[in-house]
Design a binder for these strands. Structure first.
Lengths: 183, 183
DNA sequence: AGTGGCATGTAAGGCGTTACATGATTTC
DNA sequence: GAAATCATGTAACGCCTTACATGCCACT
């Protein structure tokens, strides 16, 4: 799938591997993150497939920037993929839930401490979605009004993050309250 | 991590690989699923580590059942892991959000069709959490009252699934409404 | 006659993480 | 003087998925 993250990004404008890392960290990381090393590997394979092409741009005192551009067949591959209806739901993995499920033996206090710790982490995420992420989208539309429609979709994914994290918080609070009384 | 799913399961009682697949499908699948083939592979490596031990139980007209039991060092490994606080948040991946993010070019109707399709899938999941999953937990506690405390934690993970899927539905509805007007 | 459940496993391939390797420039 | 940023990549390893391989029994 990282393949399509990269095609989607390059479809906006050409970028280097390093640029792509910035791009994903600031946009798709929330539902599709990527390590730099994996980006470089995937770029190589996309170029071999002919879906992107690259050009080395010399720089002073730094390695050349290798800038990638999406090709026509790359655009075709992206559009084809976008058009195929997605008829499943991705498998979700959550280490906290896994630990919680089997945690009866470690005792009430250890469990509650764990839940309180997670509360802090998720609170930070909610804030991030409401502030930084929202502002970043607003700024992009301001600069490039042509992306207004794209931004509606970006906003939908941001809103998903916000709602999901708010729910996580509500669940943590509810669970903490229940366990304090009944465990 | 599958390692710990298995240790956690075998800590309740001995099981075969096939049993473990049933167990996970009915309990942890929601936040940690497993393929049968991977279960068999992981069982081998856990046995090599000495965290579980196995015994072949002959059967008629079927391959032997290989039943695994958690060892003392397996119980120790499980408890140790449960006690280590989890100070991160797992990376979330969602193909639907990924497609949506880049979907501006495929047009309003294709996007809305996709969202409506997903609505049906997530509605089914909500129902499942509210009915089958809830009943399964209730039945287990009825049969084995000693698991009352464990069941409180299982119920917390069930409730997480229910709340999360309800939120997914709310988000889909909200997004459909917004795009119908503004896209 | 065919599907689904019971029961075990191996092999190949894909995707991803972490660690390693290098090195100049900019900022605190 | 140290840390972060810019910039690219390779190598080892881990975990997981999909496909393959086998075969009986029960039910429809």
């Amino acid at each position: 799938m990282l393949k399509y993250v990269i095609l989607g990004a390059l479809n906006y404008h050409p970028m280097s591997g390093y640029d792509l890392k910035q791009f994903t960290d600031r946009s798709t990381a929330n539902f599709w993150h990527a390590e730099l090393s994996q980006i470089y590997v995937t770029l190589k394979s996309l170029e071999k497939e002919g879906l992107i092409s690259s050009k080395a741009i010399p720089q002073e005192g730094r390695p050349d920037r290798r800038v990638y551009t999406i090709t026509e067949s790359g655009q075709q591959a992206l559009t084809d993929w976008l058009r195929v209806p997605f008829t499943e739901i991705d498998q979700y993995k959550d280490t906290l839930l896994l630990k919680l499920f089997f945690s009866a033996q470690i005792g009430k206090e250890a469990i509650l401490a764990q839940l309180h710790l997670q509360r802090g982490l998720h609170q930070k995420l909610v804030d991030q979605f409401q502030n930084e992420t929202a502002e970043r989208i607003a700024q992009t539309v301001e600069k490039v009004p042509a992306l207004r429609r794209d931004a509606l979709l970006w906003e939908a994914t941001r809103r998903f993050g916000e709602m999901t994290e708010e729910t996580y918080l509500r669940w943590l609070d509810e669970t903490i309250a229940t366990l304090e009384i009944n465990f």
